Computed example of a mutant assay.
Amino acid sequence: MLDAPRLAVALVVLVGLVMAVLGAWCAITLGPGGAARFTAAPTLSLLAGPSVLNRVDALVTVCATSGAGPVFVASTTPRDALDVVGTARHQEVVVAEFPARTLQLRESGDGDLADPRSLQVWRASGEGCLVVSQDQAPSSVVVYSPAAGPVDVSITWQRGAWFAQSIAVLVLGMLLLAGAGWWLRRGLQPTTGSGEVLDPSALESGLRHDDEETTR
Score class of each variant (00 low, 15 high):
R106V: 15
W157F: 15
D199F: 02
Q136Y: 15
G111M: 08
A114W: 01
V153S: 02
S133P: 05
L188K: 06
G187P: 00
V143Q: 09
D110I: 01
D135L: 15
Q158C: 02
Q165R: 09
V153W: 04
V95P: 03
R123K: 10
V197Q: 08
Y144Q: 01
L113F: 11
V94L: 11
G109N: 05
V131K: 14
G111R: 03
P116N: 04
R106N: 13
S154E: 13
G193M: 15
T191M: 00
Q189N: 08
D110R: 15
L177F: 03
V132W: 09
S118E: 13
P99D: 04
S154K: 04
R186W: 00
A202L: 13
A178I: 02
D152K: 05
A124H: 12
T156E: 15
T191S: 03
E204D: 15
T102F: 06
S201Y: 10
V121E: 11
Q136I: 05
L119N: 02
F163K: 12
W183F: 14
V132A: 13
P99W: 04
C129G: 05
R185S: 03
L130K: 08
A202F: 04
T191N: 02
V171A: 05
A100R: 14
P190R: 02
D152T: 11
R123C: 10
T191Q: 06
L103S: 07
Y144K: 05
L172I: 07
Y144G: 00
A100E: 10
G109A: 10
G149V: 04
V197L: 14
Y144S: 10
L198Q: 13
E92I: 06
I167L: 11
S139M: 14
L188C: 09
Q189P: 01
P146F: 12
L103D: 08
L130V: 01
V95G: 02
P138S: 14
G109R: 06
L198C: 03
S118Q: 14
A147Q: 11
L184F: 13
E107I: 12
T192A: 14
V171I: 13
L103A: 05
V171M: 02
P190N: 07
L198A: 07
E107L: 11
P99M: 08
W183M: 12
L105Q: 08
S139V: 15
P150M: 09
P150V: 00
E92H: 11
W183V: 06
V141C: 07
D152W: 01
G126W: 02
A137C: 08
G128V: 06
V142I: 12
P146S: 10
E107V: 04
E107R: 05
E127T: 09
P138H: 08
V93W: 06
Q136K: 07
E92L: 15
V95N: 09
S140I: 06
V93S: 03
L113C: 12
E127F: 04
V151H: 09
V169F: 04
D112L: 09
Q120Y: 06
R185E: 01
V171T: 10
S140N: 03
E97N: 09
E204N: 12
V153T: 02
R123W: 14
Q120A: 14
A147M: 05
P138Y: 13
Y144H: 07
S139Q: 14
F98M: 11
R106A: 13
